[in-house]
């Protein structure tokens, strides 16, 4: 008997559910739950990780990210303004910077600042500066494009109104355009912040003191010490504690500014 199109679709969906159930059952029988629990959810190890995983690692991740973001935002704003400059060389410089640092791995920048520049110029940055500068340099390249788009999204009438009131070009930028641009780009900027949070893990490359460990390096060291996946899992969960609310915030802001007319 030939099945109708709808019946075929229904049958196919049934097969998909069935397959999933079979896989789960097989997995449940095959898996060694004792080992899995010991490897991933060793509560004894977990209890040893606290409170330092919060007070040291999570705290440092937040500090590194916040510093990198703040400096990067400033640098990104300067680059965005350069990109919009009527003077061509400024635009070229900004474009080269943005394309360069968006095109190379962030890890390379960390290596350059921690090893390359000290070797080449006999200068030495402390670890906090290395992280801040590296994150800022990479973050700025991404944020510059976002900020530029935000500035250009401010309606032209706003600029005309400001100029007609006697505001100079710079004054118009500072009091009318940039505040509105930031409202527009708050959601994408939040995403940049999430990216930087994860990129702060690149500090694992640098030999840092215990007090300077952030989540990834902390988790990795603890993993070696306790011979199990549990610390990595805890570190991952703590990243999510930062990034999931930021993602939620970003989506909410998007809905908020998307729904409100800016004119």
């Amino acid at each position: 008997m030939a099945l109708t199109k709808r019946q075929r679709a229904k049958a196919f969906r049934g097969v998909q559910y069935g397959l999933l159930v079979v896989i789960l059952i097989v997995f449940a029988f095959v898996a060694d739950w004792g080992t899995i629990k010991r490897a991933f959810f060793d509560f004894e190890v977990m209890s040893k990780l606290f409170p330092d995983v919060i007070l040291v690692a999570l705290k440092n991740t937040i500090i590194y990210t916040a510093l990198g973001f703040a400096v990067g935002l400033l640098l990104g704003l300067v680059l965005a303004l350069m990109k919009l400059s009527p003077v061509p060389p400024y635009r070229w410089i900004a474009t080269i910077y943005i394309e360069f640092f968006r095109g190379i791995p962030a890890l390379l920048v960390f290596i350059a600042f921690n090893f390359g520049i000290p070797l080449a110029f006999q200068v030495r940055f402390d670890n906090l500066s290395t992280v801040t500068i590296s994150l800022a340099i990479v973050g700025a390249a991404y944020m510059a494009e976002t900020i530029r788009a935000g500035i250009q999204a401010v309606p032209k009438g706003q600029i005309e109104a400001a100029r007609s009131l006697g505001m100079s070009q710079g004054r118009t930028m500072a009091t009318v355009v940039i505040p509105q641009a930031f409202r527009i780009i708050l959601p994408p900027l939040t995403n940049e912040l999430i990216m930087l949070t994860k990129d702060s893990s690149l500090i694992y490359l640098i030999g840092v003191q215990y007090e300077q460990l952030e989540l990834t390096k902390f988790g990795r060291d603890a993993m070696n010490q306790y011979r199990g996946m549990t610390p990595i899992l805890v570190a991952g969960a703590l990243y999510l504690i930062i990034t999931l609310p930021l993602g939620y915030l970003s989506r909410r802001l998007e809905r908020h500014t998307g729904g409100k007319k800016v004119s």
Partner: peptide
């Protein structure tokens, strides 16, 4: 020009109030 414009008020078709 900025100084001169302070003496000339302008009202636009699209209002152009500062939205923020």
């Amino acid at each position: 020009i900025d100084r001169a414009r302070t003496k000339i008020g302008m009202v636009f078709q699209g209002f152009n109030l500062f939205a923020h």
